[in-house]
Nucleic acid binder design. Structure first.
Length: 811
DNA sequence: TCGACACTGTTTTTT
DNA sequence: ACAGTGTCGA
């Protein structure tokens, strides 16, 4: 990043006629136009769902550039995900018709990493620092909790981790927290010890966790004002998307960046970025634009503070506020439902979304007997829509928790609905991928002991607990790093076999270091990361161990590692000068929402959180049940139910034309079947907007009416924590075994994997299906394992079945 | 040191 | 249901 920039600003002197940005305003409504053209120190754009905020934001940036009010390098745009950043860069590029190099469009985290890599050596880190993801930090915290015997004081690793994370998001460190904590409580003292030890370990390992990336950047700016001034002078226009989801640390970071540069700053350089100081007197703080919608704030649980947006006008006096309420996405029925639901949240500024596209289709409701029944409804409905010409890629299924995806998947596979799960088990969280990355980290950042310990015995080298401790002790006694201790295997007091194993590991790491970290001055070739990774995996024996294994899962692991190698190649292509550190940074900061590559030809499955910012023609909101959509855990938390309602609202507003809400009367969790109740949120949707294909009343064993079933939620016992019935008196759970004819339960998924691989089927054949009964094959499509039978069943109509696994037999 | 087995708590959401 | 942990014997 060696872009030179001068902080000269042309005053707001756009020519009155034929504005150079006139074309950017085409097709915008009044408020949108104002949001693009307003010039001032602070602007808050309150953008309701679907009100075209991305368009406004990109046009605003394009307008600043087009009118020459700003150089690209003076713009810092912050988005929530890397994907959103990429999209924004692309759209700005399209608008201004040229590449805007030097613009920073990135997430909070990537922006902070860029700053920290430049400045880390100022406070005891090197630019090769590792980024610990939550898994890494949990592993470290787990070890520390054990060492400090935190369990004796009721401290769990997960609880400790989340407390530390919350504190860091509030910019509290161990010392400042200790000062105001109740130290007469022994558990509190232990917690503080662990917190402090955790921070020491991170520093020792030359590592930052996710929260540190933000917080340490703020500390950096506060401790070194002249460093902060470099960035304050550079970034003259700061734009923040999804402002309602910022936490206190992020708020403070923005606040630091928008302060006027101090007058005592010397001209200085930082990390190769030269800044020439021009008339310090003329310097004011950067102009700040934030975009947000407090009704879509769904990250309070991880520290997002809704006050950042609700008190924006107080924080930035004289701020202009623009309201975008016209919706360009959904039909009026969908918006009416959304408005009705969200109006149940008190303490919000009233805001009503409206559209001029008309009412549209009613919302479809469905109540299944079980989660599989519900999933079958979704699959059938998707197929029906697809036959009507709706592209699979224009449909999405949302759920509250990741675990709900399983039932949907099972049914989708059987019904041959092409789908793609966003999120779920993440590629970079798979053990073999983490192992491979740990090898790379061990090379890039030798101070990172965690990475080294992780790979010490992967693959099996016979290096167990005892040997690991011996190495650590030797390192401590001689004041050297864990990594350097490996080079002294003869002094470790271990057997010759182990010595040899240690020597070998040491040699592999050294060889890879020589390849990927060439002596200063020369640049590693762009292929270095790929070569280094393959070298590490080959010579460490990792590949061999997987290939020799008879575990069928290890084959998939090999494929995943091949995939990772492919990722390094792709990385080299996109970043010819990219180093191993750049690669590890990129990998550490990718989120799941980032690699949704349009899911071409597939239905998208994702959690409601992942769905934010996306839109689809048809949306299925599943599992709309008490204890799930308001989630049980949030019920007791202050503001919890309201945040859950916003989550529901976000889900509703993703739909353009068709919205489906569904639930199940029973749901299996923790291995046993429990009874589910309709969510309170369902009643908040005006009844005339929902067309129930099967209402909760229809499937109620006692034959209650729809409204009865929906309104039956009497006064619920406060927390549900007290033993006894968790239901109101007049709401009786369904009998354990529903009295209905078992054939009404097309939902038993055989645990065993069925394989009809060689079954011969042709159009005209009659078959019997375990759940759907008898039917006639209309057609067979696809090949091999993906052969699909299109069957017309006598009683349940047309279905598509994956021949290989469908529970069918030929008649 | 490592595999087999039993046992436990876990499922909220994520940069 | 299931993964992750702990205990035991080889």
């Amino acid at each position: 990043m060696t872009d030179a920039s001068t902080p000269l600003i042309v005053g707001a002197s756009a020519p009155s006629e034929a504005r150079p940005d006139a074309d950017l305003l085409e097709g915008l409504n009044g408020p949108q136009r104002e949001a693009v053209t307003y010039r001032g120190q602070a602007l808050l754009i309150v953008a309701g769902a679907g009100s075209g905020k991305t368009s406004v934001l990109t046009r605003r940036i394009a307008s600043l550039l087009r009118t020459r009010e700003a150089y690209p390098s003076q713009i810092l745009a912050i988005t929530f995900t890397n994907k959103a950043a990429g999209e924004m860069r692309e759209r700005v590029h399209q608008l201004i018709g040229q590449r805007a190099d030097g613009m920073w469009i990135s997430t909070f985290h990537s922006a902070c990493v860029r700053i920290l890599r430049r400045e880390a050596q100022l406070f005891g880190f090197t630019k090769a620092f590792t980024i610990y993801d939550s898994g890494d930090s949990r592993a470290l915290i787990k070890r520390l909790v054990k060492e400090h015997e935190g369990d004796a004081f009721g401290l769990t690793p997960a609880g400790t981790q989340s407390r530390i994370s919350k504190l860091k998001n509030e910019l509290a460190d161990a010392e400042s927290y200790a000062r105001q904590a109740n130290t007469s409580d022994p558990a509190e003292r232990v917690f503080i010890e662990i917190f402090a030890a955790y921070q020491r370990e991170l520093q020792r390992a030359n590592a930052f966790d996710f929260d540190d990336l933000i917080a340490q950047t703020v500390y950096l700016f506060r401790a070194f004002p002249q460093v902060a001034d470099v960035y304050r002078k550079r970034f003259r226009h700061i734009l923040v998307d999804e402002y309602q989801d910022t936490n206190h640390a992020q708020y403070a970071l923005i606040h630091e960046l928008t302060r006027p540069p101090g007058s005592d700053a010397e001209p200085m350089s930082a990390g190769g970025m030269m800044i020439f100081e021009a008339e310090p007197a003329a310097e004011s703080g950067a102009s700040l634009t934030v975009v947000g919608d407090s009704d879509q704030s769904i990250y309070a649980f991880r520290g997002a503070d809704i006050r950042n947006i609700s008190e924006f006008e107080r924080d930035y006096p004289g701020a202009k506020v623009v309201l975008l309420e016209q919706n360009y996405r959904s039909t009026q029925n969908i918006l009416s439902a959304a408005n009705a639901v969200i109006s149940n949240n008190f303490d919000r500024k009233d805001k009503k979304l409206w559209t001029d596209v008309g009412a549209g289709d009613p919302i479809i409701g469905f109540t299944g007997y079980s989660q599989h029944d519900e999933a079958q409804f979704v699959a059938d409905e998707i197929e029906a829509l697809h036959r009507k010409g709706v592209d699979y890629a224009q449909m999405a299924v949302f759920y509250r928790t990741n675990s709900q995806s399983r039932a949907l998947e099972e049914i989708f596979i059987r019904s041959a609905v092409p789908y793609k799960i966003m999120g779920g088990t993440k590629f970079y969280e798979r053990a073999e991928i983490k192992d491979a990355l740990a090898y790379l980290v061990a090379v890039a950042n030798p101070a990172d002991e965690m990475a080294l310990r992780r790979i010490l015995n992967k693959p099996r080298r016979g290096i167990g607990d005892v040997t690991e401790t011996a190495i650590a002790r030797y390192a401590a006694e001689h004041g050297i790093t864990f990594r350097d201790a490996l080079a002294n295997s003869p002094q470790l007091g271990v057997g010759p076999k182990l010595q040899k194993a240690i020597d070998q590991l040491d040699a592999v790491l050294s060889e890879a270091s020589a390849l990927m970290l060439p002596a200063s001055g020369e640049l590693a070739p762009s292929t270095a990361v790929t070569e280094g990774l393959t070298l590490l995996l080959n010579k460490s024996g990792y590949f061999d161990a997987l290939r020799a294994s008879r575990d069928p899962q290890d084959e998939a692991r090999l494929e995943n590692l091949d995939e990772l190698v492919a990722v390094t190649r792709e990385f080299a292509r996109n970043n010819p000068d990219g180093t191993i550190i750049d690669f590890l940074t990129e990998v550490a900061l990718v989120a799941d929402a980032d690699d949704l590559d349009d899911a071409s030809g597939s239905v998208s499955l994702m959690t409601l959180h992942t769905a934010k910012g996306l839109e689809y023609d048809a949306v299925f909101l599943t599992g709309v049940e008490e204890d799930l959509l308001p989630h049980r855990i949030s019920a007791g938390e202050p503001g919890g139910p309201q945040e859950e309602r916003r989550l529901f609202y976000v889900g509703i507003t993703r739909a353009r034309k068709r919205l489906h809400v569904s639930l199940a009367m029973t749901r299996a969790q923790f291995g046993e079947v429990t009874v589910a109740m309709p969510s309170r949120f369902l009643q908040e949707i005006p009844a005339d907007l929902i067309d129930w294909r099967q209402s909760p009343g229809d499937v109620n064993g006692r034959g209650g009416t729809q409204s009865r079933a929906l309104n039956a939620r009497g006064r619920r016992p406060g927390q549900g924590g007290t033993s006894g019935s968790r239901y109101g008196d007049d709401l009786v759970p369904l009998p354990k075994r529903a009295p209905a004819d078992p054939s009404k339960f097309p939902n038993r998924i055989p645990a065993k994997v069925r394989d009809n691989g060689d079954m011969e089927l042709a159009a005209g054949d009659r078959i019997r299906h375990d759940d759907f009964g008898e039917g006639r094959v209309d057609a067979i499509t696809g090949e091999g394992a993906k052969r699909v039978a299109h069957v017309r069943f006598d009683t349940v109509g047309a279905k598509k079945l994956l021949v290989k696994i469908a529970p069918i037999s030929k008649l």
